Amino acid sequence: MEERKIKIKVNGRDCELNVKPNELLLNVLRNKLGLCGTKYGCGTGDCGACTVLVNNEPRLSCLTLAVTVDGAEITTIEGLVTNGKLHPIQEAFVKHGAIQCGFCIPGIIIMTKALLDENPHPTDEEIKEALKGHLCRCTGYINIIKAIKAASLEMSQA
């Protein structure tokens, strides 16, 4: 299978890569760029663990062919850290005990970033709607919702 060259910006860094036509964005991020914060969960788009931002829109990287994001800007969980400092969303998740095993959290945090960028003050129902595509087997979501509300407040005061 002949590879194609793609150019993407990942977490602010320009990347030029050769990818196979059937290569998933998830595998490119993890295996070619070493960004292992994006998790492989189900491989069928049901759990949300692989969520990244593609041009500021949440996308399941386990269902996205890398060739389809040529020219795009990608943000992974690693891209939210600035100068070694956690993003306010990440800080809120830690502070409010929304992280247990941590496997699903990168995807949920990325989804939260997209949600709060679009709707800085979501209601509990809007948060629950946004969480529909994310499976967490540890927390029961209560602390995740608390963390999202706290991040919303923190970001609006910044």
Rank of each mutant, 00 (worst) to 15 (best):
V67Q: 12
I74Y: 13
T112D: 04
E129F: 05
I110G: 01
V69S: 08
G79L: 06
P120L: 08
K85Y: 10
V81F: 14
G102T: 02
I105P: 00
N119L: 14
G107T: 01
V94H: 06
P88C: 10
L86T: 08
T82N: 10
T76G: 06
P120S: 02
K113D: 04
A92K: 07
L65P: 02
G71I: 13
L80S: 07
K132C: 14
L86N: 11
N119K: 11
C136N: 04
P122C: 10
G97L: 08
K95E: 14
C136T: 01
I105Q: 03
N83Y: 07
A130V: 12
V94M: 13
G107P: 02
I110S: 01
I108E: 05
T112M: 12
Q100C: 00
A92M: 11
R137W: 00
H96A: 02
L116F: 04
A72I: 03
H134S: 10
C136Y: 00
K132T: 14
N119F: 08
L135A: 13
T112V: 07
H121C: 06
F93S: 01
E129G: 02
P88F: 10
I77G: 02
E73C: 05
D117W: 08
K132V: 12
A92Q: 09
L86V: 11
K85T: 04
G107Y: 05
C138H: 00
L80Y: 07
K132M: 15
T76A: 10
K113F: 05
F93E: 05
G102N: 05
I108D: 02
A114Q: 12
I77E: 09
D124P: 05
V69Q: 08
Q90G: 10
D70L: 14
L86E: 14
I77R: 06
D117Q: 13
V94E: 06
C138F: 00
I74E: 08
L115P: 07
T123F: 02
P120G: 03
A98R: 01
P122G: 07
A130W: 11
E125I: 08
